[in-house]
Design a protein around this nucleic acid. Structure first.
Lengths: 350, 350
DNA sequence: CTGAAAGCGCTTACAG
DNA sequence: CTGAAAGCGCTTACAG
């Protein structure tokens, strides 16, 4: 005999071909769909026993509201965007894992959106993305997080966002600060305490906020301990391995070499290792090296690289959590602290 | 004076506060919304001049259809899911970039979903994810792509998917094959041609398809060239750096060492480097080493590591493209070929 | 080739 | 605390 076309009124069909809708729940529970809606949205305006009855029913039936329908009615999706330019793979992935830690079970999902911030119309590309998808909010990862034009655009269209950056540069509830200044200062203190006085510095690009902060933090901490680096000991590079190689060649070619080098990230530190290897300079006996990121690379290299750890997964977790909080609940500025991981790439100068 | 509440009939408002809807376009163009809908969905049942008129208007107004509304009506979202377990960061990121290459401009977006395939209810977690989000399709990345239970579940709920794996294990239109067998065979041929006869092999876990294929491809190619590896020359490891270190310690501790080692991936090859460094074994003079993946690590290590390149970005591109193709257009099985990148980690045995 | 009606599964005012 | 009506912006039958 033909199967029932309408769900029978009297029974609770735990297994249904067609997924349950708010109407099914309302009918089965004997309440209006508006009441079910209130429960879905955690409105306090529902009697406790009604709430419990309906919630039990939803669990039994395996009901979960359709994000498409809710999104249409709310005029806003349940998607969080992650916008980034070109950080290292490990950084991106850790940030994603962190964000997903916070999103799991919340009904929100993560949509990734890499872009090219050197392209003239990238801000417009991001605008189309967030506007068309009606995102609930966006995470801005360095270096796009540092772009005032991007933040201004998002603000102008009323799009919620959180910026992850080395220093605060927006309203507190829109910032996760990574304090790169302090991380670099810790390196300076460490190298000075080992006895190093002639120190080299390989920086990232001068227009990256992270690079500015790491450079500033390092130099000012050295200064506080009475060490002033001459210009010739500071070389700007591009955060890449290849640029690190080129910078190291410059820094290590003179007849008097520095006894230690701090690199703005691990990739460039790997470049220093490469040049040291080629030139027969022993790390750490003749040259101490410190990186920044504490990437997997740090432990793959020989000798294992002393580096500043940034808890990127934590950062992502915090940023996503801020985005899905109720808007009226203004949270204080969130931050995450870097700290130096000691390995075998440093020792007192010979 | 108060701004118009209704859009004036006579003019085309290029800039509107409220984004244009299908109704605005229909009214402005003097056609029904159904006709506009037909144009959005590329239906052939529209007169050419009507189509052009409406398309021009849509461009002028900056109209783009709301994916939430379309999704609700279609009962299917415009989201592609990417499900993966725990590959390396570079692999994940490249796969994402590739997928996004294909999705860009298509109206589809990429939602990432890492999971833990060792967890007993992970298949159920994926089911909830794809079902709740009403995904358009999912990309299954190794190693979850190899799980028959996951594929069966997706099939049972009618969810479209593409599996990326070392060999074909599903209907052709659901596979992107990476031919790891061939990549490993190329390594075997190369090492043999250099003159190596006593060769070590560090494999990934025996229950990974990629590992099975790489091991099989390597051994059978050696066999074809008359080389049979004794059991003692084959060590199973876990695709991680640490497991590579442990495997290398076993392989290199005996009094007669192999003259070359092939590792199932670069991470484990880095482990071999580590042990060789510690034991004072010179690579490549005393030991040739080959990896698989051609990850960034391969060029950071010293000496630069010879490794098999897999075009992961291409793989992601193909998989995503397959998912957003019209369903009636059955494409042949897609595949991507690995090839060996020669660097400085190999030479004829001393 | 084109259109009017009904519906997708929710929420927002507005009442009570 | 609860509900009936209207609407979010699209598409699917069903007609013509």
């Amino acid at each position: 005999m033909p199967a029932a076309k309408k769900t029978p009124k009297a029974t609770v069909p735990v297994e249904m071909k067609r997924p349950a809708t708010i109407n099914d729940i309302a009918r089965l529970a004997g309440v209006s769909k508006k009441t079910v809606s209130r429960i879905i949205n955690h409105s306090p305006l529902v009697r406790q026993d009604t709430r419990e009855k309906v919630e039990t029913l939803m669990r039994e039936v395996g009901y979960s509201p359709d994000p498409l329908a809710r999104g249409l009615a709310f005029r806003r999706s349940f998607l969080i965007g992650m916008v980034y330019d070109n950080p290292t793979a490990q950084f991106i992935v850790n940030m994603q894992y962190g964000a997903l830690d916070s999103l799991r079970g919340s009904g929100f999902e993560l949509v990734v959106h890499p872009c090219d911030s050197r392209s003239p119309d990238y801000v417009d590309g991001v605008r189309r993305f967030v506007q068309q998808q009606k995102l609930h909010g966006v995470m801005l990862v360095p270096r796009v997080s540092e772009d005032p034009a991007l933040a201004a655009m998002l603000d102008s269209i009323g799009m919620r966002y959180v910026r992850i950056a080395a220093v605060s540069m927006d309203r507190p509830e829109r910032m996760v600060v990574t304090h790169d200044h302090d991380g670099a200062a810790e390196v300076a203190d460490y190298l000075q305490s080992l006895g190093h006085r002639d120190i080299g510095l390989i920086t990232g690009p001068r227009d990256y906020r992270s690079s500015i902060e790491r450079t500033g933090g390092f130099l000012s901490a050295l200064q506080k301990r009475g060490i002033e680096l001459p210009k010739s000991r500071i070389v700007e590079a591009g955060y890449t391995f290849e640029s690190g190689v080129a910078a190291a060649e410059k820094l290590l070619s003179g007849k008097k070499r520095p006894t230690a080098v701090f690199c703005g990230n691990d990739e460039m530190a790997a470049g220093v290792y490469r040049v040291a290897m080629r030139e027969g300079i022993s790390v750490p006996r003749e040259l101490s090296v410190v990186g920044y990121d504490d990437s997997p690379l740090a432990t793959r290299l020989w000798p294992p690289l002393t580096s500043v750890r940034r808890d990127t997964r934590d950062t992502g977790r915090i940023a996503a959590a801020m985005l899905i909080q109720p808007e009226d609940d203004l949270r204080p500025l969130a931050s995450v602290r870097p700290h130096l991981i000691l390995r075998d790439s440093c020792q007192p100068p010979g």
